[in-house]
Amino acid sequence: MNIKLSVVDQSPVHGSHSKIDAPRLTVELAKLCDELGYHRYWVAEHHDSIHFANPCPEILVATIASQTQRIRVGSGGVMLSHYSPLKVAECFKMMATLHPERIDLGVGRAPGGTGLTSHALAFPHEPHHGDLYAHQAQMLEGFVNGTLPADNPYSQINVLPDNSPKPELWMLGSSGGSAGLAGHLGYNIALARFIDPDNCHPSIFAAYTEEWKKAGHEGTPNKMLAIACICADTEEEAKLRAGTAVYRKLAAQMGMREDFLTPSEVQDRYNAMSKSDQAYYDHILKGYTVGTPDQCWQEIEALATSFGCDEISTVTVTHSHHDRMDSYRLLAKNL
């Protein structure tokens, strides 16, 4: 199988650099991945986070697209419940105009932050907590593709004077809740296995494809699986580097919030854990793709076969920016 390898970048706040450097480091990594031959580079959206430094993906998408040559650039994703579908369409169609055939618009239902930030983003109105997501996604597709029905009160709106340039539309999900909606509306689909590997199964893609066909869409939709991946020269080093991300996920489940720990600090915490917490840590690590380039690619190929997709996107979070760059360099040797 000829697998396309892509990137989802959460713009982690690396402990190896000043916190203010995080967005710049995302751009630096994007330029490297463009040179290395990765297919897409997506940026995530998070609010009020001490770990991830991108609350406005449209700005980073525009910046990265202007500083790269070949790679597709997009959002993974815009948290649509906070925004006007028209404004999102305007932003991404403008970028598609300036960077033809290179812009992706991925949207998601999750808030990407706390309940307090959802209230602040909705002010002076009340947040709808995703209750209108299906309607918003339908309107967004209509604005992007110019397909709003004539009886829609907004059907006469011109998003741009020339409405032809379009971003590629994607819908994000982690456990299948959005698969049917994505297929019905004609979105491509990206499954975030890195969020919930226990509930991310190939049957989600099957349900999506069935809805796509039932809706009568033409062509073949794109399917992407996004995985957590840390690659190093040795399996031992890869597992050590992965500890930063694994412990953050463990700590979040326990209601703890602190800056990324170094790999050695994580090992100290692990050694002091109860047996049950160690087992939980090990379970989280098992859901990651971790090891040497050959080990990582072996698992990537197995996942692509199991899920029936030809594109895998990698999410790599490490304490050191050097380690993250190194992981992507090593993985690219098999491209």
Rank of each mutant, 00 (worst) to 15 (best):
K19R: 11
I20G: 09
D21K: 09
A22L: 07
L25Y: 14
L25M: 14
T26A: 14
T26E: 15
V27R: 11
L29T: 08
A30D: 09
K31M: 15
K31Y: 14
L32F: 07
L32S: 13
C33P: 09
L36R: 15
G37I: 15
H39N: 12
H39W: 06
R40L: 10
R40G: 09
Y41A: 05
V43K: 01
A44Y: 03
A44Q: 00
A44P: 10
E45I: 08
E45Y: 06
H46G: 06
H47C: 15
D48I: 13
S49L: 08
S49F: 04
S49M: 04
I50M: 07
I50P: 12
H51D: 08
F52Q: 03
N54H: 06
N54G: 09
P55K: 07
P55V: 02
C56Y: 07
E58L: 06
L60R: 02
V61W: 03
A62E: 05
A62T: 11
A62K: 05
T63C: 15
A65Q: 07
S66L: 11
S66R: 10
S66I: 02
T68F: 14
Q69H: 15
Q69P: 06
Q69F: 11
R70K: 15
R70L: 14
I71M: 05
I71L: 05
R72V: 12
G74K: 02
G74N: 09
S75H: 07
S75N: 03
G76P: 04
G77M: 03
G77I: 03
G77R: 01
V78Q: 00
L80Q: 10
L80A: 05
H82D: 11
Y83E: 05
S84Y: 00
S84V: 02
P85S: 15
L86I: 08
L86D: 02
K87S: 02
V88Y: 00
V88W: 00
V88P: 00
V88M: 00
V88E: 00
A89E: 02
A89L: 15
E90K: 08
F92P: 02
K93N: 01
M94P: 01
M94H: 10
M94S: 06
M94V: 09
M94T: 10
M95G: 05
A96P: 04
A96H: 04
L98I: 11
H99Y: 12
P100Y: 11
R102P: 07
I103P: 01
D104M: 08
L105T: 02
L105S: 11
L105I: 08
G108E: 04
G108C: 13
R109V: 03
R109A: 01
G112P: 12
G113S: 06
T114Q: 14
T114C: 10
G115F: 15
L116K: 10
T117N: 05
T117H: 06
S118Y: 12
S118C: 14
S118P: 11
A120W: 03
L121Y: 00
F123E: 05
P124A: 10
P124N: 01
P124Y: 01
P124S: 12
H125T: 04
E126W: 01
P127M: 06
P127N: 12
H128I: 09
H129W: 15
G130E: 03
D131K: 13
D131H: 12
L132E: 15
L132G: 01
L132V: 08
